[in-house]
Amino acid sequence: MSFLDSLISGISLGSVYAIIALGYTMVYGIAKMLNFAHGDVIMVGAYICFFAVTRFNLPPLVGILVAVLLCTVLGITIEKLAYAPLRSAPSLAVLITAIGVSYFLQNAALLLWSPNPKVFPNFFILHGADGAEQTGLELGSLRISYVTLVTIVVCVVIMLVLTFFINNGKLGKAMRAVSEDKDAARLMGINVNTTISVTFAIGSGLAAIAGVLYMSAYPTLVPTTGSMPGIKAFTAAVFGGIGSIPGAFLGGLLLGVIEIFAKAYISTQLSDAVVFAVLIVVLLVKPSGLLGKVVREKV
């Protein structure tokens, strides 16, 4: 792979991480918890889309929409059943519950869909005038697949829409208020529980989109599919500064690029180690992450 090839696939992988990292970072910002089950929502989204398209013969776009809708409902349900009752519990209890939810989702998937890998179809194929399949563009020696292109565009669009929504939307502002001070937000008339539900809904809907994009690039679908991108995206969120939306974007992109470059120029086996080594160095130098704010603990 040339340098440019690596850079583009790094940005594309990083875009997927960024979309997942948004879910971690938004939920952390508002509910002050690490939702370790977030990665598994990616997997559920991918399965739903897979079955919608291959078994129910729905068009890919409809399949994605169904996955987004069901994952949104799943996210809200997880929050209501598992996390909301623990709202004033110690954060360690919440963390362990989140890990429990993660195992629950993986094992439910194992039971429902078996451990046999499914091959995720490539939706991003165009048919030329002669009927030949095209999976990407050729620009001289450079080849960019449609999956890569779509992934990057989708990530940028999500970033722009979300940033606008958080900065200017009524609900977006309510989310910022809740993330700063829940009781003060209540005194404004904001329903904190609803706001938290909406945050989970958005994060989980995005996870479904990320699941489909990830599967389109790495098409082996098994019940543990979500954990690796989940952990990487969590790393990306911490890297960029957990709680910060631009941080998730930046952290995701950097992580993807570093991973691909480490694969291309250092070693395929060591790429993950390199990724985490970079994280550790960044956190040693700047514990709040690249764009993170220094958090003052309230007493």
């Binding site: 309510a174 910022r176 208020a177 001070d181 003060a184 005194l187 404004m188």
Partner: peptide
């Protein structure tokens, strides 16, 4: 308990939330 990371006007807007 004002929202420290919001602007003055955004804080006031939050007061008018309902």
């Amino acid at each position: 308990r004002v929202f420290l990371q919001m602007t003055v006007e955004e804080n006031l807007e939050m007061g008018a939330y309902t």
